[in-house]
Design a protein around this nucleic acid. Structure first.
Length: 241
DNA sequence: CTCCAGGCTTACG
DNA sequence: CGTAAGCATGGA
């Protein structure tokens, strides 16, 4: 599906120019989410209350699962800047040209035919073979990524973590940003630091690898079933936009 | 030069 | 079980 969406907002009026139908647009931008209801659930303290005021209207999106999965495989031990550059290069090199300067995200079938040498221009480092491997697996129908939408959060997470290069954090990102599992609470380095300095030690772990799991578990009980939205607002504050 | 970045895998006790 | 090195690349 290669198509451009042009969007701008004037006050509370959203203008969309696209060849895609309204149903897709509403789904992609999650326009039918009842934000006030979600706010009332996650608004547990003054901190979240101020974030809700500051970023009022901020929504999650329903990204394509394949694009989302590859993007976060590329995020492993990497900077946001390098991730964006790598994704852009993959689109330019292996995607389809839509307009001047606009390229679609390459499909699994395309990337499955790319060799390591051709992939080097994307600067993916040790992540490149992981991307090519899962592209091949999906192209050959050995892994049914799009079938995961019908699974529960826990089931989907187990399946995603079977993929080489996908652990708990990346699985949580795909579940939240592509499959709309709002009970997902991805904990990366940023969120870990935010949670440490904002919510102290509501979890008991010295400093082992299970700490992030414990933070996510706390967040789920603290913010509730829409904690994914809480994560988005916390992360937004850390980006400092 | 060293250290770290929207982590994960593997090796070793 | 648990912890720690290693991983490619680019920027501070």
């Amino acid at each position: 599906m290669s198509s451009i969406i042009r969007a701008k907002q004037d006050g509370d009026e959203l203008m969309i120019v696209s060849s895609l139908d309204e149903k897709f647009i509403r789904h992609y931008f999650r326009l039918d989410d009842d934000l006030e209801k979600i706010y009332s659930k996650i608004n547990r303290d003054e901190i979240m209350d101020s974030l809700i005021s500051k970023y009022h209207g901020l929504r999650l999106i329903n990204q394509d699962p394949w694009e989302c999965l590859v993007s976060y495989i590329c995020s492993s031990n990497n900077t946001i800047r390098n991730i964006r550059n790598s994704i852009r290069k993959m689109c330019e090199c292996f995607g389809e040209k839509i307009e001047d300067g606009y390229y679609s995200f390459p499909l699994p079938e395309m990337l499955s035919r790319i060799n390591k040498r051709e992939m080097e221009q994307c600067s993916l480092g040790f992540r490149a073979p992981r991307v090519l491997e899962i592209a091949t697996g999906i192209a050959k129908h050995e892994f049914e990524l799009y079938g995961l939408k019908d699974l529960s959060y826990d089931e989907g997470r187990r399946e995603l973590m079977k993929i080489n290069g996908v652990g708990g954090k990346i699985a949580d990102c795909v579940l939240l940003f592509a499959f709309g599992k709002l009970e997902s609470f991805p904990v990366d380095t940023h969120i870990e630091q935010i949670m440490d300095r904002t919510y102290g030690e509501n979890w008991k772990v010295a400093k082992n690898s299970k700490k992030r799991e414990e933070i996510a578990r706390f967040a789920r009980t603290y913010f509730g079933k829409y904690c994914g939205y809480a994560q988005e607002y916390l992360y937004m504050e850390d980006l400092g936009l």
